[in-house]
Design a protein around this nucleic acid. Structure first.
Lengths: 97, 97
DNA sequence: CATCTATTTGGCGATATGGCAAAATAGATG
DNA sequence: CATCTATTTTGCCATATCGCCAAATAGATG
């Protein structure tokens, strides 16, 4: 595989993670998880969408490796695996202002 | 407008910028512009897609405020407006490894 | 094992995205 | 002003995404 292909593959991998972040609800979830582990039902209250919708957003984040879950009785507690991804929103907010 | 609405609006604005970055070709373009201002035709060679496709990607980046253009004769030179957005890909690469 | 609660999964319609090709535009140059 | 070059815009199709609802699942508890 030539250099160009390697680069393309690397950018595709990065893009898929970034894409997972590129949704208002998922940003809200990530920022909420920054503070503490949270169960799905609590996130649903925060987000205000149907719980199945919230669950699907969590699946997207999980597939991207951005969050992980831990079961405790009936509840699944989600947590942020990689807090550094949120530092970057500082830069974005600077861009928007 | 209540607090929740304000937050939602802020996340929507952030998400739209992040979404602009969430494509392999656009990441390639941003990383290329990090090194130097570049004209569209040079980017097309780099990317390998039709020039109209590259132009559309540049429009997406421009609308997000991530790049800006400067005309010089027949050429439009694009540049990165906010290099800090690329620091964050360090963190993403760490996540992928 | 029947049932309850929390969560995920499947299905569906509406809308957005990405790529190419063709047509339009903007500015430079004869 | 006719023409050339670089770039953008338009149109089209295929595919992906988002949100809801209904149905399925996983584990706890009587």
């Amino acid at each position: 595989m030539d250099m160009k292909q390697v680069l393309k593959k690397s950018y595709a991998a990065q893009a898929s993670v970034i894409k997972a972040m590129a949704h208002p609800t998922r940003l809200l979830i990530l920022n909420s998880l920054k503070k503490k582990e949270t169960c799905v039902c609590e996130l649903r209250d925060l987000v205000g969408d149907d719980i199945s919708t919230v669950s699907k957003h969590l699946l997207v984040l999980k597939k991207a490796g951005l969050v992980a879950a831990r079961r405790e009785g009936n509840w699944l507690h989600y947590r942020l695996t990689c807090p550094c991804v949120l530092e970057f929103t500082e830069c974005i907010r600077g861009l928007i202002k």
